[in-house]
Nucleic acid binder design. Structure first.
Lengths: 249, 249
DNA sequence: ACCTGAACACCGTTCAAGT
DNA sequence: ACCTGAACACCGTTCAAGT
């Protein structure tokens, strides 16, 4: 009609330069645990921790939210799988030099892994993340610390304490606004501390600038130093028996 | 009708033993910031952190959820106010004895405050909680640590590091199932570590029992010991200049 | 002035139904 | 076998409307 030329009675064949269409309209990618976890990481990288949602992960794949439950028991399991992937990404530093520096390098490597995927550090908090990927890193740390002559009880808990510390700092990094309004807030905070009554808050006033100074990365390094120095003392000074540490069982 | 005796034409007067009815049906308590925060704490104590919801807090008061927004900007502000209340509850220990023990006592007091309100510790994580209630505690710690001769840079960050540590441990306490299935899981975990290939995981296998041993409270005490020992080294051994700590600005 | 109720744009999870 | 769509019981937040 209207003079538009019609080729026979059907539509013309696809031109050769057009890519092959997905068959039957809607794409139906094969789902799998890996696909789901990969999509979760993409969502995390692109939109941060708050966006990690069953529905958004499903959207990312192009599938309905309910279909994820065929491959993942629930959101908690998905989070655990994501954390495992992150731990596998930790680029373990070469052993060598003193154990102090090696332990610090481990912590830094973990921080880097967290920073590659914003929002993931917060997932470790308030959660006992026992994953296969964590085991390899844990083994390396244990080896390092034990061969330095550290008591076994101490070695056993370096892992947990370190994980706690790095996770907590990294989540602070994710959450702290680095520029613009964040800096403004910091200035307000400092001014507030300086305006406190001198008789009740002498030390807070005196250290106001220092309390607000230092980037989180600097605080991270400093905290690492405190931890490693503290650990080192156990080489010469034994555990305080009052700490109630189980020596036998 | 139906022979039921009717007293005159209206309903009988209230018997004297029945409490005075609230006037005109629905109670309309006066709202205020304090009422909202108090209700939030009640919800927290009764049902834990996941239950801290604008809607549930409103229910607790007997008011609609939207009415809370007259007294609190949003949920984040409510959380900050709740945290401030908790910090005010910290029963600061008497000064005396060495600074190490005082710092530890502060941490323990904070842990106690968190444990009184389950779910509140998790609220501190991934959040810069700058509240008035925190200032008083901070001032005490600064005074203690400075008078012990600690460098100002160190003193300034004991506060943050300590807060991070206590919050992280306390949130683990809230989340860890202490009995029943939790213990079962721990046994599974230990068995799993022991079943790892001996060539790749010698240390994990050797320390399997120790890695799972120790209550969280014990780990808390041990971690405190590490931190305090680490801090003590700054009295004799200065900061590592490589840490990049701002000495001037 | 203060609170309500409905509405909006979300959640996690389940389950009957489709293919 | 695998995925969809609707449904359920929730979220935080806004806003016109009631009193």
């Amino acid at each position: 009609m209207l003079g538009v030329p019609q080729i026979h009675g059907g539509s013309p064949p696809e031109p050769p330069w057009r890519s092959a269409p997905r068959r039957h309209g809607v794409p139906k990618p094969q789902l799998s645990r890996e696909v789901v976890v990969a999509a979760a990481l993409q969502v995390l990288d692109a939109e941060g921790g708050d966006a990690l949602t069953m529905r958004r992960v499903a959207d990312q794949i192009g599938v309905s939210a309910s279909s994820l439950y065929g491959y993942v028991a629930n959101k908690e399991e998905l989070v655990q799988l994501v954390l495992d992937r992150i731990f596998e990404e930790v680029d373990v530093p070469p052993t060598g030099g003193n154990w102090q520096e090696t332990v610090k390098e481990f912590a830094r490597a973990m921080l880097r892994a967290y920073r590659r995927h914003r929002g993931v550090a917060a997932l470790t908090l308030g959660r006992v993340a026992v994953t296969p990927g964590m085991l390899a890193t844990g083994e390396r740390i244990l080896a390092e610390v034990r061969s330095a002559g550290m008591p076994d009880q101490v070695a056993a808990f370096v892992r947990d304490l370190g994980g706690l510390y790095v996770g907590a700092i990294a989540s602070e990094l994710d959450v702290t606004p680095l520029a613009g309004p964040g800096q403004e807030f910091l200035a307000q905070f400092t001014a507030w501390m300086k305006s406190l009554p001198a008789d009740r808050f002498p030390n807070t006033r005196a250290l106001a600038d220092m309390l607000a100074a230092g980037s989180i990365e600097e605080r991270f390094e400093w905290g690492l130093d405190v931890l490693v120095r503290g650990l080192a003392t156990y080489l010469t000074e034994p555990l305080d028996p009052r700490a109630g540490w189980p020596s036998g069982s």
